[in-house]
Design a protein around this nucleic acid. Structure first.
Lengths: 99, 99
DNA sequence: CAGCTATATAACCGAATCAGAATACTGGCC
DNA sequence: GGCCAGTATTCTGATTCGGTTATATAGCTG
């Protein structure tokens, strides 16, 4: 579910906003240019992917980022990162050879 | 297009396979359990996202991984990584306090 | 050139996705 | 209790997506 959750731009935007601080839904609706129900649905997807948690504050729900699942993404990325790092090394070596 | 390209499991599978080595389409069809046209379409999406390139070899097309765009993903991930690393630090500090 | 292999594209289909409008639910406030 | 604010859920429609089958294209090979 993780990659699918990140596939949508509005959802990534929400995560970016929650990176700064915990926020109520209303706050997110103000920033994104979509309806409140749309935001609620994106939040549900993110919640189901474990990327956000919410706590109740009177009528509001405060959403908070939960970055742990992104660790998976980091893990998936690792072998690819190795690839481009080795290419970078190759470039560096090449440059060294030129000096 | 990057995140959308990675949203599908079969496409990530293709990238994983190309991580090992360059491969013709036929090869990928053998591994994934979908039809040849389906694989071709996934390859098109990956190509348009800049994640693979192909070269002609007689009737075959050899697909090769191009990991560079994943650098973007790495960049996007960076601030979140900072988050969980700081939490890890917090845990370490906590453990230190206990000793 | 006829036929085979490898791949891409087109046409089509069902399921999933995303958006908005309408509605339901919940907690504070008079 | 009646009302308002804030949020979630339901319903609906348009679009996209991922798959298959059928067809087109290109390069061997006899």
């Amino acid at each position: 579910m993780l990659f699918e959750a990140l596939a949508d731009g509005n959802r990534r935007r929400i995560l970016d906003l929650l990176l700064e601080r915990e926020r109520p839904v209303h706050d997110l609706v103000g920033v994104l240019r979509v309806s409140q129900p749309a935001v609620s649905k994106h939040l549900r997807v993110l919640r189901e992917a474990g990327l956000v948690t919410s706590r109740v504050d009177a009528q509001r729900r405060l959403y908070r980022l939960r970055a742990e699942p992104l660790h998976q993404l980091d893990d998936w990325l690792a072998p690819y990162r190795a690839t481009w790092e080795s290419r970078l090394d190759a470039l560096e070596n090449h440059l060294e050879d030129m000096t």
